[in-house]
Simulated scan of single mutants.
Amino acid sequence: MSQNAIIKNEAAGTIDSQEYKDAVQVFYKRHLCRLDPWPAEVIESFDYMERDTTVYLTMNGPSEFHVIGSLKNWSIIDEAHKINVPTFLLNGAYDEAADSSVMPFFKFIPKVKWFTFAESSHMPHWEEREKYMKLVADFLGD
C-alpha cells in the first residue's frame, strides 16, 4: 500500500527511494492532478522541483505528508479578516485542499466567493479548464 511505503521510507530517511516517489505519485494522481497523462507544463514543473528542491524542502519538507519545513506551523487564518479586496477561493472535489481547509478562509475573508470544481483535484485550471477560465474571467469582471 502506498501509505505504508510513505511511512516506512520517511521513518527510514529514504525519501529519495523510488518506492517513496512511486507512493507519493499515487496520491498526486488522485488529489493533485487527475489527468492522464499530465499536461507537459505540470510534468516540467515537477521536473524542475526535482532538479532544485531548495524552496519546496525549505517551506514544506520532503512531501505533502511529511511537513517539516517553515510552513509546518504557519497560518494566516488569524489575519484573513484583514484581506479587504474581493477574493476568489477555488478547490476541487478531489483536492488535497479539502473543503475543511478552505472553509476558514471563506468564513473570515470579508469579500469572498468560493467555488468547488466537481471533477477536479488541485489543478482545475487544467482539469476543467473552460469552466475555470470562465469563472475567473467572470470574477475579474465583477
Rank of each mutant, 00 (worst) to 15 (best):
M1D: 02
M1V: 04
S2Q: 03
S2V: 03
S2Y: 02
Q3H: 05
N4R: 01
N4E: 01
A5Q: 03
I7Y: 00
I7E: 00
K8T: 02
K8G: 00
E10M: 00
A11N: 00
A12C: 01
A12V: 02
I15A: 00
D16C: 03
S17Y: 02
Q18H: 00
E19I: 06
E19G: 04
E19P: 02
E19C: 05
E19L: 05
Y20L: 09
K21E: 05
K21R: 10
D22H: 06
V24E: 08
V26M: 11
Y28W: 15
H31L: 07
C33T: 09
C33D: 08
L35H: 03
W38R: 12
W38F: 12
P39G: 09
E41S: 10
E41N: 04
V42Q: 13
V42C: 11
V42R: 12
I43K: 14
I43C: 08
I43V: 15
E44R: 15
E44D: 15
F46L: 15
D47M: 11
D47C: 12
E50Q: 10
E50L: 08
D52R: 04
V55L: 14
Y56E: 09
L57H: 00
L57S: 00
M59Q: 07
M59K: 09
M59Y: 01
P62E: 00
S63P: 00
E64I: 05
F65I: 04
V67W: 00
V67P: 02
S70H: 11
W74P: 08
S75P: 13
I76D: 13
I77W: 10
E79C: 11
A80W: 07
A80T: 08
K82E: 15
I83W: 09
N84K: 15
P86C: 11
P86K: 14
T87A: 07
L89A: 08
L90K: 09
N91L: 05
A93T: 11
Y94V: 03
E96P: 01
A97N: 08
A98K: 14
D99R: 13
S100H: 13
S100I: 14
P104L: 11
P104T: 10
F105N: 06
F106I: 04
K111E: 10
K111D: 10
V112D: 03
F117L: 10
S121K: 05
H122Q: 09
P124L: 08
H125I: 10
H125W: 13
W126Q: 02
E127R: 04
E127F: 03
K134G: 02
L135T: 07
L135N: 12
F139C: 11
F139Y: 10
F139H: 11
G141E: 06
D142P: 03
